[in-house]
Structure formats: structure tokens, C-alpha cells
Computed example of a mutant assay.
Amino acid sequence: MAPNKIDDRAARENRERLKGYKARQAMHQFRVRRRVRDNWIAAIAIVAVAAGATFAQIAYFSAGPGKPVATAEPEPTETTPPTGENVGDVPDPALAEGRTWTGTLTINDVPLGIELDGAAAPQGVASFVSLTQKDFYTGVPCHRLTSDGFFVLQCGDPEGDGSGGPGYSYGPVENAPADNVYPAGTIAMARQAENAYSNGSQFFVVYEDTTIPSDSAGGYTVLGTVTSGLDELKAQVTDKGIAEGTTDTPAIPVTITGVTIE
């Protein structure tokens, strides 16, 4: 009997439709798997960015550069009593005399009136006064500037890269704000993360309200405040921004041109 050409054609068409259906199903399943994969990748990336920002805030004053973003309401951090000891010839806290010291911190020829609280931070103020009396700070750069939610200008490292100091280190943290908020004008000591006894000569000036989360060592020793000249410092220095291609290098050279204290 002769084959039925119509039936053969119908069979071929059915097979082609079946192949097409299977191909579309395979493509649909691939797209579903890819969407699931992309969603997981996006979720992981978001978590990683959030964790990285928090770590950068906490570790900012140690070795690595960064532009941490302050949190408006930081979570309370459980701390243990800091351990450690002073290293080197640390000035006697008695030098702070338990009183308010006044003077001028000049940065790029912008004079900042300052007040240091020798009663609240005797060790930190004693160190700052001692270094000032030895003319340690004159000509030393301000090597680090941050913005975008975290507003500090860090100074006092004779090496100019965050690694230098006066040849000694001290602690523990003194006079840190309980709420982790450092108002504009705050002058505070920079230190390594998790190390309460790593204060030296480096300090930072807060030029807009900034939140810095505490770590296991506590917060950061607040020496005192800028009483005048902060607006001019912002206009002449911090508003110039960060150098292109860097994360926290000031766009213009910034140097301490003089410090007086009495």
C-alpha cells in the first residue's frame, strides 16, 4: 500500500512542534534559573556592601583608607575593659593641669581658635600640649580627608601617610561621647581599631557632625573643640574635596602651619 503523504507531513509537523515546545521550555527554565541566580548575587552584593561600610567606619583610623558612611542611629556595642599599656616616653598626664587650655591651630594659614579640656582628657591633652611646646606639629601634613557622610580632616602624622607618630603611644580612650556623635568642631585623637593604647600624635578635626561607631576599645578621645574659624577651614580646605583617583587624599596640599597653646 502506498504511504499516506498527508499523514507523513502531519507527523513531521507534530515532531517539529514538539521540538519547538521543548526548546521553548528549556529556554524558559534557563531564564528562571538565571533570574534566581541574579537575585541571589544582588542580595549577596547588598549585604557585602553594607558590611563593608560598617567595617570601614570602625577600622577607618587604623591602616586602611576609606570613605565610611556614618549611621544616624548606631547600634550599641558591647565593650570589654580595654587592656594594654603605654609605650615609650609618654608625657605625664599632670601636664594637662586639669584645666582648659586655649590657643590657635593654624592649617594652611587658616587660624582655628581651639579649647582643650585637660580635666576630661588629661593624658591626651598632656600629649598635645607637650608636642606643641616642642614645635612637633609645625609643618606636619593633614593627610586624610573624608566626606559623603563622614566629615573629618586627619592631621599630625610626620610621615604623611597615616603610619607615623611621636615615638610613643598611650591610652586608654578618654572623654569619648556616649552616643558616638562627634559634633562639628570636635578635635579628637585618631587611633588603631580595637586598640585603646594606640593614641600618638595623629588627631582629627570634625568639620560637620559625624557618627563614629565605638569598637571594643571604646570611642575616640575628645581633646576639645574648635571655637572659631571652622567655616573658613571648610571654604579654604575641606570644600576643595578629595584628589581624583584617591579615596581620602585632600585635593590640595594641607599642612599645619602653626600651633600655639596656653
Rank of each mutant, 00 (worst) to 15 (best):
Q154W: 03
F150S: 04
G160N: 12
G171Y: 06
A119E: 10
F136C: 02
G185C: 04
Y170K: 00
A188T: 04
A120S: 06
E174C: 04
C155V: 05
V173I: 15
K134G: 02
L145E: 05
A126V: 06
R144G: 07
V125Q: 01
S147L: 15
G165W: 14
A119I: 00
D179P: 09
A121S: 05
S163M: 09
S163G: 13
A126C: 08
D148T: 11
V173G: 07
S127I: 06
S127M: 06
A126P: 12
T132C: 12
G160T: 10
Y168N: 07
P172H: 02
Y137Q: 04
L131N: 10
E115L: 01
D148Q: 05
N175W: 02
T186N: 11
G171L: 12
Q133P: 07
G160R: 02
R144I: 14
Y170P: 14
G167M: 07
G124H: 14
D117F: 03
T138N: 14
N175D: 10
V125S: 03
F136Y: 13
G167F: 14
D135I: 03
V181S: 13
G118H: 09
S147H: 02
D161L: 02
F128V: 08
D161P: 09
I187W: 09
E159I: 11
G124S: 01
A178H: 06
S169I: 15
S147K: 12
A176N: 13
P122Q: 01
F150L: 10
P158F: 13
T146F: 06
D161N: 15
P141C: 04
T138D: 10
G164W: 02
R144C: 10
G124L: 15
S147C: 10
F150I: 11
T186G: 04
S127T: 12
D161R: 04
S147W: 05
C142F: 05
F136S: 00
